[in-house]
């Protein structure tokens, strides 16, 4: 019976008639018609639901904003900003390296003075 009920359901869902299936089946037609009625009622009642466009858009924005990592944020930036950011990082690194190589230590006297100055 479970096979037959499954075939009837599939047939109804694809919009085909079930009369021939019921006529050919070994099971009593009254019993099968009861199944058909329930399946029909479920088909009529259970239709897909859609959320409001407002909710859908808001949730999408919340999800994408929340977890936007550095690479994806970078990709979304305008090209000029990206070029500027790359140049800034590059020259920043160059400056850092140069300061490490040729950088000057702060004078010792000033350091000592800073330590002993009362607040």
């Amino acid at each position: 019976m479970q096979e037959l009920v499954d075939v009837i359901t599939t047939s109804m869902q694809s919009g085909d008639g079930v009369e021939s299936l019921i006529a050919k089946a070994d099971a009593p037609p009254d019993e099968l018609n009861e199944y058909v009625n329930i399946i029909q009622a479920l088909q009529t009642s259970l239709v897909p639901q859609e959320p409001s466009a407002d909710f859908s858009d808001r949730l999408r924005a919340d999800l994408l904003d929340r977890d936007a990592g550095l690479p994806s944020r970078f990709r979304q930036m305008p090209a000029r900003v990206q070029v500027a950011a790359v140049l800034a990082i590059f020259f920043g690194c160059v400056l850092f390296v140069l300061r490490r190589i040729f950088g000057s230590e702060p004078p010792g006297e000033i350091q000592e003075e800073a330590v002993v100055t009362p607040l």
Partner: peptide
């Protein structure tokens, strides 16, 4: 690691 791809998954399955 790509939010745009996640956004597309969201579009495909959110309503369901």
């Amino acid at each position: 690691d790509d939010m745009e791809a996640f956004g597309e998954l969201y579009e495909r399955f959110m309503q369901k």
